[in-house]
């Protein structure tokens, strides 16, 4: 847009030119900010103040009810020296995130590619893959609990037909997390699938036409055209899935309550319990800000690295 404006004004004299450019630029700025004004107003009106309060709260001893007491950085130092759950839940969350994101996006991509083909009955399959994503988490927890029963559950039944003696799953300290990851991948796949499906529909045809003329095989087209064109959507998925997988605990909670031991306790649930079960709202705010710093750093890195692999037309 700016390019166009500038080429059009180039013909006139220099003095007018600078003034025009400045005016045009001011207009551009105004237009841009007008377009984003609703969301800016929203964030300022509904989030800034509460966020400021929570920053302040992280420096206090506060239970949400009586007056907060300023304690400086005590909450932060306590986390690293005095709270065995801080590190453990943090590690669990990293484990959960690193395992579930590639699986969700990877399988989501496969399903999106399968569902993008115009074959008979594709609408049914698409809906089937999406269905778990829309189902109530409590119901899902219950259903899978029953599937994971060690003695007469469906999973171990299938395994025993393959001659494998299945583990205790949800009550085993080493298998509970894989089980939880499996269910959350199963449940969450609808999201990347739909995003990628939408991305696939938006791809311009020209590339494929010329590739076909060049005689590129199907997988080559996938590798050299489809996947590169989808990279903006992959970036979106990586960043948003990373942010949200650090904040999800509903499904985990209904399946294991964080157990056995603290094998599946996640960081966000720890924050939640500190704030609302133990009444340590100040401490919980401090934990939330540590989380913020970590995710923000990773997000920033992803953003900076996008130049290396994200392809915009």
């Amino acid at each position: 847009m700016s390019m166009a404006t500038i080429t059009m004004t180039r013909r006139t004299s220099d003095a007018v030119n600078t003034a025009d450019v400045r005016r045009a630029r001011r207009k551009q700025n105004l237009t841009g900010w007008l377009f984003i004004s609703p969301i800016v107003v929203g964030v300022v009106a509904f989030q800034f103040f509460p966020i400021l309060v929570s920053i302040a709260a992280s420096l206090t001893d506060w239970n949400g009810i009586s007056a907060p007491k300023f304690v400086g950085l005590k909450n932060f130092s306590e986390m690293f020296t005095d709270d065995p759950l801080f590190l453990q839940t943090f590690k669990n969350t990293v484990y959960f995130t690193l395992a579930s994101i590639p699986l969700t996006i990877g399988i989501g991509l496969v399903l999106a590619l399968l569902c993008a083909r115009p074959i008979r009955g594709v609408a049914f399959f698409r809906t089937a893959y999406f269905a778990p994503y829309v189902t109530n988490v409590v119901a899902i927890g219950f259903v899978w609990f029953w599937f994971f029963q060690p003695d007469n559950g469906v999973i171990n039944g299938l395994l025993s037909q393959l001659g494998i003696n299945g583990p205790q799953w949800l009550s085993s300290s080493s298998w509970a997390m894989p089980a939880v990851i499996m269910v959350s991948v199963w449940q969450g796949i609808g999201y990347p699938m739909i995003i990628l499906l939408a991305g696939l529909q938006g791809l311009p045809n020209e590339f494929y036409e010329s590739a076909k003329i060049d005689g590129a095989a199907a997988w080559q087209r996938l590798r050299f055209i489809t996947l590169p064109l989808l990279t903006p959507h992959f970036l979106f998925l990586l960043i948003t899935q990373f942010i949200s997988s650090f904040q999800v605990f509903g499904l985990i909670y209904v399946m294991t309550k964080g157990g056995p031991g603290h094998a599946t306790s996640v960081y966000i649930y720890n924050i939640y319990q500190n704030a609302f079960s133990y009444g340590k709202v100040g401490y919980a705010s401090a934990m939330a800000w540590i989380l913020f710093v970590v995710i923000a750093a990773v997000t920033f890195l992803q953003w900076k690295l996008q130049k290396r692999w994200v392809f915009y037309t």
């Binding site: 065995p84 009550s171 300290s173 056995p260 031991g261 603290h262 306790s265 079960s277 133990y278």
Partner: peptide, 21 residues
Amino acid sequence: KNTIGARELYRPALDNAYNCE
């Protein structure tokens, strides 16, 4: 003073006894 906090520590620990580990 903090029954719930204490419980959140020892009950999960007992999981590892209850599952016979």
